[in-house]
Design a protein around this nucleic acid. Structure first.
Lengths: 222, 222
DNA sequence: CCTTTTGAACTGACCAGTCAGTGCAAAAAG
DNA sequence: CTTTTTGCACTGACTGGTCAGTTCAAAAGG
């Protein structure tokens, strides 16, 4: 229709394509992935509004039009990014908890394993974490509803383990599950971001120990 | 509120002063105050870049020119806002700790009092807290250095009390002071923001109890 | 009077989203 | 086997609008 004389020219050869994905959509998948990666760092650094679509496209090595070929809008790209990232996180948390239980650990050990998994996630995707924290409590934003869903998904993983632990008598009945879950998530989130930003020389084990001590009540428990 | 004509300014009276110290209340001070209050909510809602100077001026009920008469730039207005807000927070935390000590409380009780003071601050200035969290871990921003100073100031208050507590044998020597301080601050920050955003029906006492339980190791201690 | 605020117009940069068109590989036609 | 068509994925110049910051004369305010 729109290619009146496609000259054969010298074929450059089969450009490498992404790593995975089967047939068909491979190219598109790879492009989307590049866009996610470019967007996540830029938005973490500068915020959503201060990041331009031109910058994202440039860092991803594609043309601006490609962004709009793959996503309806800048906002939609961002929302999909959020979903993608939190999906990774919850999978990783749940896996850590399950693995701990399969090893016959206690529920508190499962919580500890989740703290470690959370730290590992933040270590691997610091930009995503930054961006998530920065946007989570904003009101009146276009992606508010997306964030609500996505947050609930993540916090629910922690709540589930807490509920189990209370049910089996391992934790005191007096704890408030939603508030405690939020506090634990916050503890890990903020400690990890602070670690990255202000104390990068620390090892993940040091950070984990400090948080573990708090969880086990050895900071001021008696 | 933003009527075209002159506003009946003198009718307002000594309204509660939000985010700034109220020294010699000159006319200029009052204008700055109005600008801080307008800016803090707008920026908390939409972020720095998405907030326009025209909006800030309109909500403050002043002319745009006035913004630039009082501040060199939008960025400078924002930086000064950060300084004032964190100043208020540290004063409040320190006062809580000192008051607790004067009552002859333990260092752990002082920590508990600071948690409460932190919650009260966030309750009173939710917008400021939102904005602070959203900006704190951003890299590459113009106000990065301002934030660094201002964060250190706030975290140092907690670190001081922890150090005291370890020094007097009240807390175990094995705790890592900077990391534990960051974790405690994070716990309060995130729990409080979550409370505001997702569980507003809870009372400040409920939130305080949940955090206190964690601090005292009664969640999973022993 | 000296300081502060007003209001409105103006500029120049910047930016989200659009659209006509390109390149290419595989299917269809010859 | 060769030629033509098809359609996906991508391109980048362009548009219409927005916004930070400027300017300045005139009017409060104190």
């Amino acid at each position: 229709m729109s290619a009146p004389g496609a000259a054969p020219a010298s074929a450059v050869g089969p450009e490498r394509i992404g790593l995975m994905e089967s047939s068909g959509t491979t190219r598109r998948q790879a492009t989307r992935q590049k866009l996610y990666e470019a967007a996540v760092t830029l938005i973490a650094e500068k915020g959503f509004s201060a990041t331009t679509v031109d910058e994202i496209a440039e860092r991803a090595g594609v043309a601006k039009g490609t962004v709009y070929y793959n996503f309806k809008s800048k906002t939609e790209l961002f929302e999909e990014l959020l979903r993608h990232g939190v999906g990774l996180l919850t999978v990783s948390l749940r896996a850590a908890a399950e693995e701990s239980e399969e090893r016959g650990g206690t529920r508190v050990e499962a919580l500890d394993a989740m703290i470690r998994a959370g730290l590992a996630f933040i270590d691997r995707y610091p930009a995503f974490t930054q961006l998530y924290v920065a946007e989570l409590w904003r009101t009146n934003r276009a992606w508010q509803s997306t964030l609500l869903v996505v947050r609930q998904e993540a916090v629910a993983v922690v709540e589930d383990v807490l509920r189990d632990a209370v049910g089996s008598g391992e934790l005191s009945e007096e704890i408030d599950i939603p508030l405690t879950a939020a506090a634990l998530v916050g503890m890990v989130l903020v400690a990890a971001l602070d670690w990255q930003a202000f104390q990068p020389e620390r090892s993940i084990d040091e950070v984990h120990s400090a948080l573990s001590l708090l969880l086990h009540g050895r900071v001021s428990g008696h």
